[in-house]
Computed example of a mutant assay.
Amino acid sequence: MSATDTASHSNLMDGVYRHQRHIYDLTRKYYLLGRDQLIDGLDVPAGGTALELGCGTGRNIVLAARRYRGAKFFGLDISNEMLETAKISIAREGIAGRVALAQGDATAFDTRALFGETGFDRVFISYSLSMIPGWEKAVGAALAGLKPGGSLHIVDFGQQERLPLWFRTVLHAWLAKFHVEPRATLRQVLESECEKQAASLSFETLYRGYAVKAVIKS
């Protein structure tokens, strides 16, 4: 995204979540399925680093930091409103010393400038690609942010191909209210990136296609 587009999207997300951020985690736990499976599969090494793109309220970082106590975590989000909630959650958990947050665009970011890091052992993206304009660039940026031997972990909405049509219709209409669009070409984009970088892809559908989970190992 251009600087103008980034500012516009940041303002949009701030507007969407200015009030919703206070109830976001309570309401989203019922339909952002697969997030805990993603965290369980991160396997962040002791002394390692992990970056979440689109970290939102910090919910995933808090849970991951509890599980991988020897690791450092970093979070990037375009919404300052969401980052304010994340800071509160992280301070409450007592993990501020090993978590750093920054405001930025997931499609183009400088890890050294934002975090003082040249790369991460793990990068994870949970239900954010479906909200990011130019999301394909976010995938490329995430892979570029990995250390050699690192891995990218993704969970997001699938195409609900084995769920009733009425359910898909209602869900997509609901998601559109929050500027969310399941990415029909996600698997193809990930496969293409893997071919470019000689990386391996694990891709699976969850809950009859409701969600998808992917891991790219460099």
Rank of each mutant, 00 (worst) to 15 (best):
R69C: 09
A96E: 13
S200M: 13
L12A: 06
M131K: 08
A86G: 03
A113S: 10
F120H: 11
Q159C: 08
V189S: 08
G15V: 00
F167K: 12
F157C: 11
V139I: 12
K87Y: 03
A102V: 09
I39T: 07
R66G: 11
G54F: 09
D77W: 12
V16Y: 03
S151K: 15
L63N: 05
A106W: 05
E84W: 03
I78Y: 08
L51C: 06
Y127S: 00
E191F: 14
R98I: 10
E52M: 04
E193L: 14
G34D: 05
Q160F: 15
L163H: 03
F124L: 00
R92A: 13
F167P: 01
H172Y: 14
L83W: 13
T111W: 15
V180N: 02
K213T: 00
I125T: 05
K29E: 00
Q103Y: 03
L26Q: 06
E161P: 02
G58S: 04
L32P: 00
S89M: 12
S2E: 05
I88A: 08
T169N: 02
L42H: 02
Y68I: 08
G48K: 09
L186D: 06
Q159M: 12
G54L: 07
Q20P: 00
V16Q: 05
A142K: 08
L146V: 02
A108W: 05
V170Q: 06
G54T: 02
S8G: 00
T107F: 07
S8L: 11
Y30D: 00
G104A: 04
L26V: 04
L163K: 05
A71P: 01
Y207A: 13
A214V: 03
R168M: 07
L32F: 12
I154W: 14
H172I: 13
K147D: 08
G15W: 06
S202K: 14
W135P: 01
S128C: 05
P164W: 08
A199S: 15
A173L: 14
S192C: 15
W174L: 13
V16F: 01
D43Q: 06
K137A: 12
L165N: 10
L32K: 01
Y31I: 03
L165S: 11
H172Q: 10
V180I: 13
N11I: 00
C55I: 07
L12E: 01
G119H: 06
V215F: 10
L114G: 03
F109K: 01
V62E: 09
Q20R: 09
R69Y: 11
K147G: 03
R28I: 05
D43I: 12
E84L: 12
R162T: 08
L38D: 02
T169E: 03
K29S: 02
S192H: 15
W174D: 09
S8K: 15
R168V: 07
L42S: 04
G116D: 02
L146H: 05
F74V: 10
F73E: 09
E161C: 07
K196D: 15
L83Q: 02
G140P: 04
I95S: 00
E81M: 13
S128L: 04
V44E: 11
R208F: 13
A102K: 10
G54W: 04
C55N: 04
G158W: 04
A141H: 09
W174A: 12
M1F: 09
M131D: 05
A86S: 10
W166E: 12
R67T: 07
F120I: 14
D14A: 00
A214T: 06
I39P: 01
D14L: 01
T205W: 14
A106V: 07
A144E: 14
T107G: 01
E191I: 15
S2V: 05
